[in-house]
């Protein structure tokens, strides 16, 4: 099975195929399909209420989709949840660290949830925190960290078990401009350094780069997806912001000049 070494695997990091979901009568997602390639950065672009949160709940298996299927590295989330979940790292929109525990304790808990051997988990935690510039703060309580630092710890935590797919649900919410840019740079670095496929949900257009893949989600439907350049061209727009407004039919904000 050498052929399944990193980067050579035939499967995308994440495949969402024909996924629909509704809460009672309200349809939240309608036949949503897209892929996140391995070692790539895919932005999931949508306004609040577009269905991003529902999509994250489905992909992280909080509950199952009413129809369609979700594969992680070729493992069906419904039929082989354990195999799919162990290849996935998640940073939820809500802060999910224990504020009263130290960084090291938070990471140790997460490692245990993945059945990692404590000694390996410690070594991996130290390496990851060093990468995120937090190695000297292992023993500090999470409560004493800044918002941006907490996010970096959460990303380090999501990477502990060496996932091949990293999901981030609006991770820059509540961060200032410098922390946002810093976080984005870190995650883009991971795509290369850790060979992870990243799905980055956002409603902020300036977080998307020209070379990224993008999925435009609006009111539960995928309006377009592909390389940013292609999506912009297809929409007959000059920028992804303009393309997004054209696709969704949302008026350009007054005074904006993009």
């Amino acid at each position: 099975m050498k052929a399944l070494a990193p980067n050579a695997a035939p499967f995308p990091a994440l495949e969402v195929a024909g996924v629909s979901h509704s809460y009672g009568k309200r349809v939240a997602l309608e036949s949503v399909s897209f892929c996140v390639a391995q070692s790539s950065f895919t932005a999931l672009l949508g306004l609040n209420g577009a269905g991003k949160t529902t999509l994250f709940s489905l992909v992280t298996r909080l509950f199952a989709a009413r129809s369609g299927h979700i594969d992680v590295l070729g493992f069906d989330l419904a039929r082989a949840p354990s195999q799919a979940l162990r290849r996935m790292g998640v940073v939820f929109q809500a802060r999910t660290l224990d504020l009263d525990l130290s960084i090291a304790q938070n990471l140790a808990y997460h490692a245990a949830l993945h059945g990692l051997f404590p000694r390996d988990a410690r070594a991996r935690s130290e390496a990851l925190l060093a990468r995120f510039g937090l190695a000297h703060r292992m023993k500090d309580k999470v409560r004493d960290l800044s918002g941006g630092e907490m996010r970096r710890v959460e990303i380090a935590r999501a990477l502990l078990h060496r996932p091949r797919l990293l999901l981030l649900d609006e991770p820059t919410v509540g961060l200032d401009i410098a922390a946002r840019a810093d976080l984005l740079a870190h995650v883009r670095g991971l795509v290369r350094g850790e060979a992870v496929g990243v799905l980055w949900a956002t409603h902020l257009i300036d977080e998307i780069d020209q070379g990224d893949d993008v999925v435009v989600l609006h009111v539960g439907r995928v309006l377009d997806r592909g390389k940013v350049g292609d999506v912009v061209n297809r929409a007959g727009a000059r920028t992804i912001g303009e393309a997004f407004r054209k696709l969704t039919g949302i008026a350009e904000p007054e005074g904006a000049s993009s």
């Binding site: 298996r61 354990s82 998640v90 929109q93 802060r95 999910t96 224990d98 997460h110 949830l113 993945h114």
Partner: peptide, 15 residues
Amino acid sequence: RETGNMRTLLVSPFP
């Protein structure tokens, strides 16, 4: 569940 801790528990690969 409100803060998301439940979710970090449930994304564990164990049943």
